[in-house]
C-alpha cells in the first residue's frame, strides 16, 4: 500500500492561517497565484506589490518578497521595480478601490506604457477592508455602506469593466476575467495567471487577470448565498473568459 498526497498547500504560501473572513475569495486567489509562481520556479525571483485593502496582508501569506504601496499607487511602485529588475517576476495585486477608483491614473498609464508586470485584480464589487462601501465595480441597485438605497447610474455611474477597459490599450498584451467560486473556474483562473506570467516573462507587455470574488461579510450574506448572488448578478455584467492574448504563441499551439 502506498500513500500519496495529491493536494496540499503550495510552497508558494507560508504555513499561516489568513485573517480573511470565511469564504473570502482572496484565499483562493492567493493560493492559485502562489501556485503559479511556484510552478514558474520563480519563488526566489518574484517581487510582489500588495495593495491597500484587505489583501495588504498578502505578504503574511505569500512566500516571496513583497512591498506595500500607497492606496492605488501599486502600479507605479510595480513599474519602478520592474524597470530596475527586468528579469524578476513582478506582481501587482489590486482590489477594486485600489485599481478602479483611486489608482485609475496609475493603472491606465502603466498599462498604456505596456509595463511588463502582471496585475491580479480582485473584483468583489465593493470596498472590503473599510466596511463594504461602493466601489466603481458595484452593481446597479447594489446596496453598500455608502449606497444604502442601492447604486443608481444617475448618481454614481456604472460598474466599471476594468479588464475590457484596459484591454483596449495597445500596451496591454493579455487580459482575462476569471472567477474563484467553483473548482472548474478556479482551474481556469489559474491558467489565466500562468499565461499572464508567460507574457510577462516573454517581455511582451502588460498583463491583467481580473478575478470575480465573493465578499460575504460585506455583502451581508453567507458564503453560499454569496456564490449564488455572484452568479446571478455579477456574471451577466462581468462575463468570464479570455479578452485579449497578444503574447507570443504558446509552445505546441
Amino acid at each position: 500500500m502506498s500513500e500519496k498526497i495529491i493536494f496540499t498547500r503550495t510552497e508558494g504560501l507560508k504555513p499561516a492561517a489568513t485573517t480573511y473572513c470565511p469564504g473570502c475569495g482572496h484565499g483562493v486567489a492567493h493560493r492559485i497565484l502562489a501556485e503559479a509562481v511556484a510552478e514558474a520556479k520563480a519563488l526566489e525571483r518574484t517581487v510582489a506589490v500588495a495593495p491597500v485593502g484587505c489583501a495588504v496582508y498578502g505578504y503574511d501569506y505569500w512566500n516571496f518578497d513583497t512591498t506595500e504601496a500607497a492606496h492605488g499607487r501599486t502600479p507605479a511602485v510595480a513599474t519602478a521595480i520592474k524597470r530596475v529588475l527586468p528579469d524578476r517576476l513582478v506582481i501587482c495585486y489590486q482590489g477594486d478601490g485600489d485599481m478602479a477608483s483611486i489608482g485609475m491614473a496609475e493603472i491606465v498609464h502603466a498599462a498604456n506604457r505596456g509595463e511588463k508586470f502582471t496585475v491580479i485584480f480582485i473584483n468583489n464589487a465593493n470596498y472590503g477592508m473599510t466596511g463594504g462601501q461602493m466601489a466603481p465595480t458595484t452593481l446597479i441597485g447594489q446596496k453598500t455602506a455608502t449606497t444604502p438605497y442601492g447604486r443608481t447610474s444617475e448618481e454614481a455611474g456604472y460598474p466599471m469593466k476594468m479588464a475590457e477597459f484596459l484591454a483596449q490599450l495597445p500596451g496591454v498584451k493579455y487580459a482575462a476575467r476569471g472567477a474563484l467560486h467553483k473548482p472548474g473556474l478556479i482551474r481556469t483562473a489559474k491558467s489565466y495567471i500562468k499565461r499572464a506570467f508567460e507574457i510577462q516573462e516573454a517581455k511582451a507587455g502588460f498583463s491583467i487577470v481580473e478575478l470575480l470574488s465573493i465578499c460575504p461579510a460585506n455583502w451581508g450574506l453567507s458564503p453560499l448565498e454569496s456564490v449564488q448572488k455572484l452568479e446571478e448578478l455579477m456574471l451577466p455584467i462581468y462575463p468570464l473568459g479570455l479578452i485579449k492574448d497578444e503574447g507570443p504563441k504558446k509552445e505546441g499551439a
Partner: peptide, 21 residues
C-alpha cells in the same frame, strides 16, 4: 473519488487529499 473540488474551492487551503493504493 479524489476529485479535489473541496480542496480547490477552500479559501483557507485547509484541505489535503491523500490517495492510497
Amino acid at each position: 473519488t479524489g476529485c479535489m473540488a473541496c480542496a480547490l474551492v477552500c479559501p483557507d487551503v485547509a484541505i489535503e487529499i491523500i490517495r492510497t493504493e
